[in-house]
Design a protein around this nucleic acid. Structure first.
Lengths: 200, 200
DNA sequence: CGCAGTATTGAGACCCGTCAATGTTGGTGG
DNA sequence: CCACCAACATTGACGGGTCTCAATACTGCG
């Protein structure tokens, strides 16, 4: 029922804003961004997806966002109609989708709280903590985070500019919450970050 | 199965952030705000709920937001456990909840796009258009919107301050997109607002 | 009538977006 | 293996939008 797709390059389009939604996607390996593009060309990244994440839930049968790989990725996709029939015969499974939808809803609402009220350096602290939850990109022993995405991606996710992300990172460094090993490799002090991020 | 609750005063608490989620709520009449409060006291309104809206979906059995009436309101509430048992026996109905969750998810993501990328006066234009979708508060013939919420509520929803909301409203007025009949009564030029708001 | 909550307006400071210049990095081909 | 190049990242300077504080209206209700 599922098809496997491999993307060996980054910035590959998975689906585009406005497309008819024919599939639901399960990310097996890699990192994906889903984003919205305004008529004036502004890009807002709505979510980053990590291994194990399901994405591509549509509205009225159409995608409201585009999705692209950030790293090389392996993805399963399931045809929507077949999935729907399958779900109707196995209503129990739909629970999973309800749970998933509710989980995504929480993520979006949480992001709203963050974007609405927090100074940029605190948004960045939250973001780094979120990234550190993904084993494959965070070495717990060394407390070393390897960012798969660029400053521009982070900026378009946090609702700011790449320059401001860099400056916010400088501030976190000054506060000893982060040490810059390289641009994409950061040593984190989780406790300090949590203190800075704290919003609930 | 459902209980009916009437709130005759505004700013009445329906449930609080951190509460165990015992009910799901259906707003029959009135307007409700759900919001998150940070340790530093900052308030982010996550959504306004209008007649017909379902709200109070919880995470891990607890409410992540508080809910309060904005106007006097009539609300139905359904005990969660009973609801759950009921849904399991009538899986078809759960579709409704999945649809609802997905709809809320879209609202939150849409709000994210707005908060991330739009200047305040454009956020306000989007907000006024959203309000004008609710018949009970918008007289289509007269194009007259009656806002049930304060500038502070709008500010905490759009991620800004009450003063800035007022100033953004002045700008919309200068652009002839809005005419201020009174503080809470606005005559809208929907076409001009849509031009200003346009983001997809 | 008076009060409390709400709304508006002004002034100053500061954060952050933009533009521009420079530094860094990883990949490619000679 | 190295030179080169194109992204990416960082830093600085500047201007504008918005937050905060403060003062002043406005409004509905007891």
């Amino acid at each position: 029922m599922a098809q496997v797709i491999d993307f060996h390059t980054s910035a590959s389009a998975i689906f585009n804003q406005g497309d008819e939604a024919a599939f639901i996607y399960l990310l097996v390996d890699g990192v994906v961004r889903t984003f919205h593009t305004s008529p004036d060309g502004e890009r807002q990244i709505v979510a980053f997806h990590w291994p194990g994440d399901l994405f591509g839930l549509a509205e009225h049968g159409r995608h409201v966002t585009s999705a692209e790989t950030i790293t090389s990725s392996q993805i399963y996709r399931f045809p929507c109609q077949k999935l729907e029939r399958f779900l109707l015969k196995n209503p129990k499974i739909e629970d999973g989708f309800l749970i998933k939808a509710i989980h995504d809803l929480r993520s979006a609402q949480r992001q709203l709280i963050i974007m609405g009220r927090l100074a940029i350096f605190r948004r960045l602290a939250v973001f780094l903590l979120d990234c550190s939850a993904h084993e494959h990109y965070f070495d717990k022993a060394k407390r070393l985070l390897t960012l798969p995405m660029s400053r521009y991606d982070i900026a378009d996710y946090l609702g700011t500019s790449a320059e401001t992300v860099t400056r916010a990172l400088s501030k976190l460094t000054a506060d000893d919450a982060v040490r810059r090993v390289s641009a994409r490799a950061l040593k984190l002090d989780l406790d300090k970050l949590r203190t800075l991020a704290d919003f609930d």
